[in-house]
């Protein structure tokens, strides 16, 4: 059993081609990657909005010190 498309280095190396595991499932890797990328942006935007809103509220309430200038 092998997750790769070959089980030993014998024979013609050039005929092996790709040497990463699960050859043939590249479309799935791409799908997972693209979904992760989009979800990352969505989650990050949500978190940042929340964080900035909290920060603004704390500044207005005076529970966070205001740095002037520097």
């Amino acid at each position: 059993m092998s997750t790769g498309s070959f089980e030993n280095w014998a024979g013609n190396i050039a005929e092996i081609g790709p040497i990463y595991p699960f050859v043939g499932a590249e479309w799935l890797f791409v799908l997972i990657g693209v979904v992760y990328w989009i979800v990352w942006h969505v989650r990050q935007l949500g978190n940042e909005n929340q964080s900035l809103a909290d920060q603004e509220q704390r500044l207005k309430a005076g529970t966070l010190s205001k740095t002037q200038g520097d």
Partner: peptide, 20 residues
Amino acid sequence: GILRIPEAVEIAGLDSAVRA
């Protein structure tokens, strides 16, 4: 509404919460 940070945060500094 997601381009610029709120004015109060800009004045206090973007690191103000981390600093606290």
